[in-house]
Simulated scan of single mutants.
Amino acid sequence: MPGILGDLSALTPEEEERLEMAVAIVNQAYVDAHHDDSMEMLAADYLAARQDTVNLLHQFTDDQLAAPVPTVVGDQAAGDLFAGRAEHATEHITSIEEGFRQGV
């Protein structure tokens, strides 16, 4: 794996494939573990995780949130990184909702 955490451009094609498979395995394990959960239970778990994240964010100072951190697309402010992860989660939620509408 690359020496700089998060530098996806440093991955070989084989490492990139292994990383994609690892993410897919984790995602599938979650799907399998929660396959029979109700929407209410899934929503409650999501909302609890969201609240934990909000509580964690409140522990950061403005200076810490403005501090640059290395990412796969270059340095960015820690607060922007958190916001980007939230946006990514929203994309997943939208996909899940669309799948439910389509009966997938």
Rank of each mutant, 00 (worst) to 15 (best):
V23K: 03
R101S: 04
A22G: 02
E14W: 00
I96W: 10
T53Q: 10
A44R: 12
A29N: 13
Y46E: 07
H34R: 15
D75R: 08
A44G: 05
P13D: 03
N55L: 10
L81P: 00
D63V: 12
P2K: 06
Q28P: 02
M1L: 11
A77C: 03
T90D: 12
A86D: 12
N27F: 05
A44M: 11
E87K: 08
D80C: 07
L47Q: 11
H92V: 10
D7C: 04
E97A: 15
E87R: 09
T90P: 00
T94F: 10
D80Y: 03
M21T: 14
S38C: 11
A67T: 13
E14A: 11
D7P: 00
E15M: 05
N55D: 08
D36W: 06
L42D: 05
A66I: 06
F60C: 04
A86K: 07
E14S: 08
L47M: 12
E91C: 12
T71D: 01
S95Y: 07
G74D: 04
E97M: 15
L65T: 04
A78Q: 11
A49R: 01
H92F: 10
Q51N: 05
F100M: 13
P2C: 08
A78D: 05
T94I: 14
E14P: 02
V104S: 09
Q28W: 12
P68A: 03
V104A: 11
E15T: 05
N27A: 14
R18H: 10
